[in-house]
């Protein structure tokens, strides 16, 4: 379809170390790192023979920011739930390097998914708390994560006192706080207004640069996927499947001028065409 599809060769090494480095493990690497996660021909069929996902394969490397882009019903959320270990694939395998399971994950849902009865700080503490780590020993990390998402001074607030965008920031801080080696985001900004959404996209790009986090990002926005990710898996519905992979060879950290760069426009156009071609395609046998 396009010259750069299905290559993976434009895969960029992890983010450069930035200021306020939460992760600090991302020295520029010259060789392509081993994948931390590999999906091999994963199928998911629900009761009543509904094929949610067919033959999905992908590799996730340290520092990747991968977008799963597609219309509703293309199986992108199903893929995320499979990776999160909330469901098992019907066929195929999901392999983690070192055989480690999936407990080292950060997750951001479409809704902020905060506990309304707990303060911002205690919400961000949750992943530590469930591992039996007391608040007193993790408070510095929690404050650091809140600082990263721009919520200094909000630790003692309750979620209901925050705006939609701020709640989403708390949710992102919770996903970042443990330095999880993979962060899953399921259309995190879909419910926000366009202005808040763009601001959060900018901030997420900054966070990516600062922490070097590895992210799988589900979205139905072409612009969002090109702006944020280094690889885009374009998906199509009925049955849900990956139809193309598009590389975005723009290194991190990306400046705010990326949104107006000619390459951004070019890749956006190409991604859009691929997406629409996928919608027009007849069903696979």
């Amino acid at each position: 379809m396009t010259g750069e599809t299905r290559s993976g060769a434009h895969n960029l090494p992890g983010a450069r170390p930035g200021d306020g480095n939460l992760q600090g493990t991302d020295a520029p690497q010259m060789t392509e790192p081993d994948p931390i996660l590999r999906l091999r021909q994963v199928d998911k069929t629900f009761a009543g023979n509904v094929v949610a996902l067919r033959g999905m394969s992908m590799e996730v490397r340290q520092g990747d920011f991968i977008s799963l882009l597609g219309p509703s019903g293309c199986g992108k959320s199903t893929a995320l739930r499979l990776i999160a270990g909330l469901m098992r694939p019907t066929h195929g395998r999901i392999e983690w390097d070192g055989g480690a399971g999936t407990d080292d994950l950060g997750v951001v849902f479409q809704e902020p998914t905060l506990m309304p009865w707990a303060t911002v700080e205690k919400n961000v503490w949750l992943p530590f708390r469930l591992r039996g780590q007391p608040l007193s020993r993790t408070r510095d990390r929690i404050r650091e994560a809140l600082g990263l998402v721009g919520l200094d001074g909000f630790a003692e607030r309750y979620p209901r006192e925050l705006s939609g965008g701020m709640k989403m920031r708390v949710s992102i801080a919770r996903a970042l706080v443990t330095n999880a080696r993979l962060i899953l985001m399921d259309e995190p900004f879909a419910a926000l207004d366009e202005i808040t959404r763009q601001k959060l996209n900018d901030d997420l790009l900054n966070l990516k640069a600062q922490t070097g986090a590895t992210v799988i990002f589900v979205t139905h926005s072409v612009f969002e996927s090109v702006f944020l990710s280094n690889r885009i898996l374009v998906m199509a519905p009925r049955p849900g499947r990956v139809i193309d992979e598009i590389a975005v060879p723009e290194p991190y950290p990306r400046g705010m001028d990326w949104r107006t760069a000619p390459a951004y426009g070019e890749i956006t156009r190409r991604t859009s065409e691929t997406l629409h071609a996928g919608l027009a395609q007849p069903e696979e046998p």
Binding site: V107, T113, L130, R131
Partner: peptide, 12 residues
């Protein structure tokens, strides 16, 4: 909240 339930499941 079912998303919170999922989150708790993911965190084992």
């Amino acid at each position: 909240d079912h998303n919170l339930r999922d989150l708790f499941a993911i965190y084992r």
